[in-house]
Simulated scan of single mutants.
Amino acid sequence: MSSEKTLSENAEEYLEVLYKLSLKERPVKTTNISKMLNISPASVTQMLKKFEKEGYVDYSPYKGVTLTEEGYKIASNITRKHRLLERFLHDVLKIKKEKVHDQACEMEHVLSDDAERALCHLLKNPDECPDDEELIPVCDFKFETCEECRRRKQEEVNQVGKRDKNLVSLTNMKKNEKGKVSFIRGDYKIIRRLMDMGITMGAQVSVMEVAPFKGPVELLVRGSNLALGRDIAKNVFVEIIRDNTSTSGGALSYG
């Protein structure tokens, strides 16, 4: 775990489910957590109250729960390891899709951050897991591109450290949300294509529309309207900008 606190495997599973659900609904209903984990609502409520005391969630009875910035950071990291492991099991070890999820669940809790980075390089920076094509969250090293990460030795990576801000993919933003481009996953061809459209590091983007069924993401960038295909939009990660125009470390604009 990248967090200084040590979490049980059970707690990590809860946070992973919260991460997945929070990308679709905010706040997350406890009944939906209960269904995904096949655990009683009472047990879910008990765990959420514990998480709130530890600063991982904001919980309101009868309304639901949202991840805090710290909770999102941990949940995203767990999810990233899980989905990278799924890719490894399927692409390298040739395990069938229907079996990779359970095996990844058993392995994700012991995968170190260094091993996670090495695995990402081995797999050439994949963006989706194989079983349900869910997006692999971005790493939290202080790099702007995958190429920059690949060029660094582990000692240099340790010196660079981790990001202070959580990032979210353009495809996971809500309509009218704004963000500052902070990381692009992919090779130089993708980066060059985005630069030609004005999507560069530090550029502010506003989401005008996120089309359903994996349609394009419509953006406002530098005064111009753009329709960005999902294949590229999912690999552009931003810091969410709040209404007060300050850049927040929050992963998503809840509420």
Rank of each mutant, 00 (worst) to 15 (best):
M1G: 15
S3A: 13
T6L: 14
S8W: 02
S8G: 05
N10A: 10
A11Y: 08
Y14K: 03
E16L: 05
V17I: 15
L23R: 05
P27S: 12
T30R: 07
T31P: 05
M36R: 12
M36K: 13
L37A: 05
I39N: 08
I39F: 10
S40G: 05
P41A: 13
A42G: 08
S43P: 04
V44W: 01
T45Y: 11
K50R: 11
K50H: 10
G55V: 03
Y59T: 08
P61T: 10
K63L: 13
G64I: 06
E69Y: 04
K73C: 02
I74L: 15
I74G: 01
N77T: 13
T79I: 04
H82C: 01
L84Q: 04
L85V: 08
L85E: 03
R87T: 09
R87N: 14
R87G: 01
F88N: 02
H90I: 06
L93D: 06
K94V: 11
K94C: 10
K94M: 12
K94P: 04
K97W: 09
E98M: 06
E98Q: 10
K99D: 14
D102F: 09
Q103T: 14
C105Y: 11
M107E: 07
V110I: 15
L111Y: 03
S112H: 09
D113P: 10
E116S: 12
L119A: 07
C120S: 14
H121I: 14
K124T: 08
P126K: 01
P126A: 03
E128M: 07
P130A: 03
D132K: 06
E133I: 04
E134R: 09
F141W: 13
K142L: 14
K142R: 15
K142T: 11
T145I: 08
T145A: 04
E147G: 12
C149H: 08
R150H: 13
R152T: 12
E155S: 15
E156H: 13
E156M: 13
V160C: 12
V168C: 05
S169P: 00
N172H: 08
K178L: 04
K178H: 06
V181H: 04
V181P: 02
V181N: 01
F183P: 00
R185D: 04
G186A: 07
K189M: 07
R192D: 14
L194P: 03
M195W: 11
M197L: 15
I199Y: 01
T200L: 06
Q204E: 14
V207I: 09
E209N: 13
V210R: 03
P216K: 01
V217R: 00
S224E: 15
N225Y: 13
L226T: 07
L228K: 00
R230Q: 09
D231T: 08
A233H: 00
A233V: 01
F237I: 00
F237V: 01
V238C: 01
V238L: 01
E239S: 08
I241Y: 03
R242A: 12
N244E: 12
S246I: 07
S246N: 09
G249A: 07
A251S: 08
L252W: 01
Y254E: 11
